[in-house]
């Protein structure tokens, strides 16, 4: 039993949850009043959009790519949600569908020309931002009523963000980790040649993953305006970094298709909590991103230690 508990495999899997628990315990110790329905709701409210963006990034990382445009993309979908979707729902839905299709197209382009995803997505981040600025030159717009209603949902006993996080984690877990096509998709990250030889279309796999990332990016944008009720082209600029950090905190490996949807959601929760933790410690918000970087480095260091024991 003890040997099992101290095996590198178990430690690696437990690391995301452990870091989240440590952080949560620290918050409760510093500020016991946070340990309430209201307190948890407040601390975790931005978890939902961050978790959705993290899942989007995770799909891209699964196929060994990296998306540096997810923040700008979430910003664009937020702008579409607060303008087109609210005013003319049909047109808004079409525009959001076009966004997802554009992501699938990017996946196809990257696969077809064997392009470095970093450069392509970095370029695309300007395109998303440009379109968002055209749609909404100044901050404003209003979120559709049903989005606000959904995000403002009051569930008895358990705060809504926690329920939403569990649902997101489980749905993606079942789709990616338990389905047979999910295994193929992860295989594309592990050994593309083998997957290709086995007769699966690599192009289709990449397009599927990029489309899924686009879809979750749309969900992230919509859930974000559900909380803020207005949008701005720059509303989600930080999400690019959050999303990468969330995947890594959640135990995702950078290559080889080794990812964990549940871990990614826990990673997003951890990131959302860091901000509150620093506020409770009365540390200036200047250090917020620094602390997130610090936590990232600590978790990576712990993982390096565990991996070394395995070797």
């Amino acid at each position: 039993m003890l040997a099992q508990l101290s095996s590198p495999k178990f430690l690696r899997a437990a690391l995301p949850a452990a870091s989240f628990t440590v952080l949560l315990a620290a918050i409760f110790y510093v500020q016991p009043r946070a340990m309430s329905y209201f307190g948890m709701n407040l601390m975790l409210q931005y978890t939902v959009p961050i978790a959705l963006a993290t899942i989007a990034q995770m799909f891209i990382i699964t196929v060994n790519d990296l998306d540096l445009s997810i923040g700008a993309f979430v910003g664009l979908t937020a702008c579409i949600g607060a303008t087109l979707l609210a005013d003319t729902p049909l047109l808004g839905t079409l525009a959001l569908a076009a966004c997802v299709a554009a992501y699938a197209g990017l996946g196809a382009l990257i696969h077809w020309r064997n392009l470095p995803s970093i450069v392509v997505t970095l370029g695309m981040s300007f395109v998303w931002l440009g379109i968002a600025v055209l749609i909404l030159p100044t901050p404003g717009g209003t979120a559709p009523g049903w989005v606000k209603a959904l995000m403002g949902l009051k569930v008895p006993y358990v705060p809504f963000p926690i329920i939403a996080a569990i649902v997101i984690g489980l749905v993606v877990h079942v789709a990616l980790m338990r389905s047979s096509y999910g295994a193929v998709l992860r295989g594309v990250g592990g050994n593309p040649k083998a997957v290709g030889r086995a007769g699966w279309s690599l192009l289709k796999a990449k397009m599927t993953m990029y489309a899924a990332a686009g879809f979750f990016g749309v969900l992230s944008g919509l859930s974000l305006i559900g909380l803020t009720s207005a949008a701005d082209a720059h509303i989600a600029d930080r999400y690019t970094l959050y999303a990468i950090a969330g995947v890594i905190l959640g135990g995702g490996e950078f290559t080889g298709g080794r990812v964990s949807p549940v871990g990614a959601v826990i990673g997003a929760l951890t990131l959302a909590l860091t901000g509150s933790f620093l506020t409770f410690l009365r540390i200036s918000p200047d250090w917020q991103i620094g602390a997130q970087g610090g936590i990232l480095i600590i978790v990576l260091a712990l993982r390096a230690l565990i991996n070394r024991r395995e070797a």
């Binding site: 020309r113 470095p116 450069v119 370029g123 695309m124 931002l129 440009g130």
Partner: peptide, 18 residues
Amino acid sequence: SAGIRLIMTGLIIVAVIT
């Protein structure tokens, strides 16, 4: 406009790398 400038910059980078 600013939006068009951003879009063009992005598209040209993607075009060049493609």
